[in-house]
Design a protein around this nucleic acid. Sequence first.
DNA 1: TAGATTGTTAATCGATTAACAATC
DNA 2: TAGATTGTTAATCGATTAACAATC
Lengths: 206, 206
Amino acid sequence: MEKNEIPEVVIGRLPVYIQKLNQLLREGREIISSKELAEHIGTTASQIRKDLSYFGGFGKQGSGYNIIKLLETLRGILNLNHPWKVVLVGAGHLGSALLSYQGFLQKGFEIVLALDSNPSLIGTKIAGIAIEPVERLEEFVKAHQVKLAILTVPASEAQKVANRLVESGIEAIVNYAPFTLKCPEGVHVSDIDPVLLLQKMTYYLE
Amino acid sequence: MEKNEIPEVVIGRLPVYIQKLNQLLREGREIISSKELAEHIGTTASQIRKDLSYFGGFGKQGSGYNIIKLLETLRGILNLNHPWKVVLVGAGHLGSALLSYQGFLQKGFEIVLALDSNPSLIGTKIAGIAIEPVERLEEFVKAHQVKLAILTVPASEAQKVANRLVESGIEAIVNYAPFTLKCPEGVHVSDIDPVLLLQKMTYYLE
DNA sequence: TAGATTGTTAATCGATTAACAATC
DNA sequence: TAGATTGTTAATCGATTAACAATC
């Protein structure tokens, strides 16, 4: 089965399954049916079984899925069985908060590099990570061979920095800047301007 | 036309149009065609025209859309013509970064209330906003009549806090916690655990 | 007028849901 | 065995794209 045969929307749901299965495992559960998992997440049993069936059959008729086994399978599919290096660009408010956030490392994402353009930040450390000058982005990104980037720069800089990241070999960008990026095919982008999320909700209010 | 006839995916794209139209306006543009706007955003002219057509016809054959007029229309559709009050729960790393983020106020979202359970934070101010005890959530949320919430609490607290928010009248939640919320119909939730975004990208890498 | 672009319809494409034989 | 649940197929539903008459 070719990778690009599987709908992106299916891939996007796998981390949610992982998140919930981890929680169930911590609670001591060993087996779960698609029906019960669906109820926990707020989806349908059909959708879960269909999603998993793109990759094979991991369940057992009559009982359901072994949580540990399913977690291992899903982690394998998403290439989460080894740690990933991440570069963060923009060590302002949001950037430094993400540098201090312990959740990344816990889940296998290590921020190995932090860049900023502000001279008063360069050379300082946040959560043990030294802030390097953004001028040397290409050099550092290539040296670390990092593929993932988190972008927390001002809107006016976002596209320029994204272009430089892609030039340097970055293949996926989580973009918090209030600017919708345009990147070449093959580069995966999640635009998650916090304001945009609020703006689409207000349609349904009042 | 009933509100719930319009696909949610269409509503979700309107803020992106607003974002890009604002930028074009700042650059001095007055008129834009669906074709050019699509190129800027990385979508298709067909989709933009179809999306807008749910709400009426705002363009002019032969030339395109008046940017100022279209912005006003889109802001009206999304109820963005008046400011919105927001409550933030969880003033840890990410929460305090969002409290300090100026982008919300600039775009009409005012964080009027910040809550935390940590006694050493309560009473302190972050970016001019006093941190109040989360025990008094119901009281404060009702008093402020706030409809929007940002959740930046640990995973273990997320669902409990969300339930209390909904009970108190909150109708939309932007959830940064690494926990996928289950909320009643009619409550709008955006789950944006930063780790989940990275996890779906690694599928395509390596 | 001639060229350009809209708004809308129909065709296509893709995702979700329902149903059920297979089987633990 | 009887009950439960999977994996998969077919049916349904919904979103995107293409095409074009209308018209600025």
